[in-house]
Design a protein around this nucleic acid. Structure first.
Length: 436
RNA sequence: GUGGCCGUAGCUCAGUUGGUUAGAGCGCCGGACUGUGGCUCCGGAGGUCGGGGGUUCAAAUCCCCUCGGUCACCCCA
């Protein structure tokens, strides 16, 4: 190897092996299927944008993590760090051509230059769906129903979507006399699960938030009851006279009722006052999806309502609500749990390459078998038959077929370890169809 | 940006208190055998011991620096 260039990938960037890539593609199709069943249409946007379009839109952290550089023409450009900011630019730019309410989904990679660790990469896939140009519980409920539908369709056992509304805690803080500290408190409370009440108290005390407000926020965050009705009742008691807080609770009640009407399992989606989300732009309902069995992975996605995401690009008011699945992390968690298996469709067939003579009979047979719906590969070189069989075994193919000079086919069902013969290609196809 | 752990063949790792030509398993290539794979056996290729400097008669093994990886914090998907 000396003298060679070391084959390697950049920190936080990974290759995807066939098994994982296949699983990922299946998940893409599943998610697309759910989104489209709700009337959402796909869009795509460039990986690279003008830096000014992205800069400052996702908060300080996003700015620090953004891959930004100068292109060959001297322009400042940057790679998208999420799919929501490009959506805002997209909607503002194409307002005239879109029908509102606008429902779109977008699946693609995003890039963040942060320190990689377990379940966290510098390049990862997000699957977003957003409903732009509609306000109210019905829009929120649609997104939540669809989001639960996605995890259900992915057959991710044990997922939980926790829902809250930012107006409730914001209202509570207003009533406590610290409306301007909402962002700080929200972020600290968001960590309740991880650092515990004392941790949150310490962090907020250090940030100069009055003890009384901290106590109220903590009492609120810990008020989850046995079911949504109980939780909502407790939240309501805590917000007291705050109008904004009561609006939030009323919104949650209506949204939850609609979600239940749609048939979403209460065990999979429930109110949790401790959920706030870190992003600044959420203004109403917020939610987060988790896989409790995937310890150390963090959330698998989330979403919420934002009043006016596109205000930086246009004067038109464009409120929306959306959700996002962190597919790379979800896939990684499933891989770690051994829940990602090879496609194993039993449709794989190897047609051996003759050791002598040309491969025309093999090619003809391969085409015939493909037409019957099998995935057929012809071994590309005239190597020893045992080597070709070994390859079929190694790759996990279901069948191996050999054509002899007379056109007769000698096959083997590798899984059943059973040999069979057929007088011609047509009969060989019948044999495969019968077995596979 | 901060801290812990780790860096020996393609992969997973051994390498004793520093001491001759650095090893194993798997994988790979060739062969034997199995009537067309999975088992077994034989042979082979493949390593600047992350890199640089230092200590020493002698360093993969000790010290320093550096690069890389990983996990945690921060923040997030």
């Amino acid at each position: 190897m000396s003298g060679k260039i070391e084959p390697r990938t950049l920190k936080g960037f990974r290759d995807t092996m066939p098994v994982e890539a296949s699983a990922r593609n299946r998940m893409f199709r599943t998610i697309e299927g759910v989104f489209e069943s709700f009337g959402y249409a796909p869009i795509d946007t460039p990986a690279l944008e003008y830096e000014e379009v992205l800069r400052g839109k996702g908060g300080d952290e996003s700015d620090k993590q953004m891959f930004a550089f100068e292109d060959q023409g001297g322009r400042r450009v940057a790679m998208r760090f999420d799919l929501t900011v490009p959506l805002a630019r997209f909607v503002a730019e194409h307002q005239a051509d879109l029908a509102f309410p606008f429902r779109r989904y977008h699946i693609g990679p995003v890039w963040r230059g942060e320190r990689p660790q377990k379940g966290r990469f510098r390049e990862f896939y997000q699957c977003d769906a957003d409903l732009i140009g509609a306000v109210g519980p019905s829009a929120d409920a649609e997104i939540l129903t669809m989001y639960a539908g996605v995890f259900g369709a992915l057959e991710v056992d044990g997922f939980v979507i926790r829902v809250n509304d930012r107006r409730v805690l914001n209202g509570l803080l207003e009533a406590a006399g610290v409306p301007d500290r909402a962002a700080t408190v929200l972020r600290a409370v968001d960590k309740l699960d991880k650092v515990g009440p004392e941790g949150v108290r310490t962090e907020l005390a250090a940030a100069g938030v009055p003890d009384g407000a901290v106590a109220k926020a903590l009492e609120f965050a810990g008020c989850a009851g046995r079911d949504d009705a109980e939780t909502l009742a407790r939240m309501e008691a805590l917000v007291g006279g705050s109008e904004k807080g009561r609006d939030g609770i009323a919104g949650l009640r209506t949204t939850l009722a609609l979600v239940r009407s749609a048939g979403v399992d209460p065990a999979r989606l429930r109110v949790d006052p401790a959920i706030t989300r870190g992003l600044d732009y959420y203004t109403g309902v917020v939610f987060e999806a988790a896989l409790p069995s995937a310890t150390g992975f963090g959330s698998m996605g989330g979403g919420g309502r934002y009043d006016d995401l596109a205000s930086l690009y246009t004067n038109t008011k464009l409120p929306g609500v959306g959700c996002s699945v962190g597919l790379s992390r979800l896939l990684e968690a499933l891989v770690e749990q051994g829940r990602v298996a090879a496609a194993a469709t039993g449709r794989g067939v190897l047609v051996t390459h003759p050791e002598q003579g040309d491969a025309s009979a093999a090619f003809a047979l391969a085409s015939a078998v493909r037409r019957a719906g099998f995935a057929v590969e012809v071994y590309p070189e005239p190597r020893k038959h045992a080597t070709q069989m070994k390859f079929a075994d190694r790759k996990g193919l279901r069948f191996a077929l050999t054509v002899d000079a007379s056109g007769a086919v000698h096959g083997k069902d590798l899984r059943a370890s059973a040999a069979f013969d057929a007088p011609d290609a047509a009969r060989a196809v019948d044999e495969l169809s019968r077995r596979g």
